[in-house]
Design a binder for these strands. Structure first.
Lengths: 277, 277
DNA sequence: AGATTTTACGGGCGTCGTAACGATT
DNA sequence: AATCGTTACGACGCCCGTAAAATCT
């Protein structure tokens, strides 16, 4: 199994259209069509159900898509990590989303710097759910992120857990109460709080916390945040109210499972050693 | 990054000899030499320190070797899993080493068969430490195996924990005692028991339990075994003695981390539901 | 009729193999 | 002298691109 046909396959599977996929790959349609047929022949499996005006994945194709993404990520990561291993002054790259650190980034870095195995740290700021991709593709050595996330190929340790607060407009009727319950906020089935939080952000096309808070201030939405946020983002127009029955927010440090780096291990030590504090 | 040069690289890194690696790959030396140079150029990194009569990996090469193995395994696994996904009557392949099941294989299979999500099971018997390779390369859907093992790319749950017993010749002086301590048996630093067990087997080139017991009977060695063994392998010439201070043997069920198969999930349920019993 | 995938054909680039060279033990 | 990695060179094959055909909406 070669990697190039697999890249072609992923492109087609994403576009579900040979012409567009070919364009994205920078080749013409015919070679692409043949490459896919050859791949199907090699595997002895039909990957796409094609009619002239529609392309759909077969069950085998679905499986290959998820597996192929993993394999191709690993391939990219291999090259990138080898390159970085040749760096005479290797930096430790830590992926963090702005403000998604429970205020612990500085103490973690301070504790890390004191470790003899530590290295200079390069922060890689990233957005929603990018952490895991950066780790899997070899762009980052470690990441600081909130659960839940896809643990595939990663190891992780909990850094801290926080209670949640609801953020709502100061003018909102619920703001008059001192404390809220989960049902007041999510209005959905319980136990899906993490999904709820992600969906709120995704639905409004919000990419960072200040934007989200702006929408809250305008009364457009109510959301749940870790309790470390209010102290760092006081807003006159926003009321933060505890939600005692909401499950806690879990901040974790994650790293590629196969990592054998002592520098990464030291960072994990530094991050987890704050749990007691 | 293409997969073929990476396969070539792994071959050279394993053989540390271009000629032998080329032979193993079924090509001549020159193309291999050029492929490696090209790969080094692409990465901008030196992978081997070559003098005419010695080839050694650079640090970057070491990193690439471990990463490349993972990526190539994932690539193979992708093809194999896609093939198997096209099977209209898919079987669940369970990797087990003979006698390394704490006697739980039958109950697990029985419980599994009762699950509506279950499928016909095909047992894949394997040897020392092969389980993880079978999982990673897509040959097996799940494995039943003792800790410790390399968890990279795998998820696992504990099935059961067992106390350990020492197996020694009935004629051995220690056999007169009712109970032994760890120090009597390992004679090495403590806390390395799992390593000790593996090494005993590796050192004597033993591939299965009956062979190992034969050596024990002859008085050639003393080893630690899970306490489920004596009942299934009574031997007049062998004394089994409890070792209370030995850490327990942990039997686990493992599966590829990215698995979304309900059939695999059902097997895991069946295996872990025996914990209480 | 329009859009899309697939077959047909010709050209180029990559990779391979044989042969010769250089270097080290 | 022998062994091993590398360079040189000629050839084969795979993959690509353009053009045309087939098929479904």
């Amino acid at each position: 199994m070669e990697s190039r046909p697999l890249r072609y396959f992923v492109a087609v599977a994403q576009e579900l259209n040979f012409a567009r996929a070919a364009e994205r790959l920078g080749i013409a349609s015919p070679p692409l069509s043949r490459a896919i047929r050859k791949l199907e022949a090699e595997l002895g499996v039909t990957l796409f159900e094609r009619t002239t005006h529609s392309v759909a994945l077969t069950p085998a194709g679905e499986v290959l898509l998820t597996e192929a993404r993993i394999a191709l990520d690993a391939l990219d990561a291999a090259g990138r990590r080898a390159r970085r291993a040749a760096d005479p002054e290797p930096k430790l790259v830590l992926a963090v989303k702005a403000d998604a650190d429970a205020g612990l980034l500085d103490p973690i870095l301070a504790g890390y710097a004191a470790d003899p195995a530590s290295r200079p740290v390069s922060l890689r700021l990233c957005g929603w759910g990018e952490h895991t991709r950066l780790l899997r593709e070899g762009h980052a050595d470690a990441a600081l992120l909130y659960e839940p996330f896809d643990h595939t190929g990663l190891d992780a340790e909990t850094v801290t857990t926080e209670r949640r607060v609801a953020a709502l407009s100061a003018a909102h009727p619920l703001a008059r109460r001192d404390s809220l319950s989960l049902a007041d906020v999510t209005s959905g089935p319980p136990g899906e709080v993490d999904q709820f939080v992600d969906e709120v952000a995704a639905r409004h096309r919000v990419r960072d916390l200040p934007q989200l808070l702006k929408l809250v201030e305008l009364g457009d939405l109510v959301t749940l945040l870790p309790e470390s946020v209010p102290a760092r983002y006081p807003r006159p127009g926003i009321a933060y109210r505890p939600v005692p029955d909401a499950p806690p927010a879990v901040l974790a440090v994650a790293w590629p499972q196969q990592s054998r780096s002592t520098a990464t291990a030291a960072l994990v030590r530094a991050a987890t050693s704050l749990r007691g504090a």
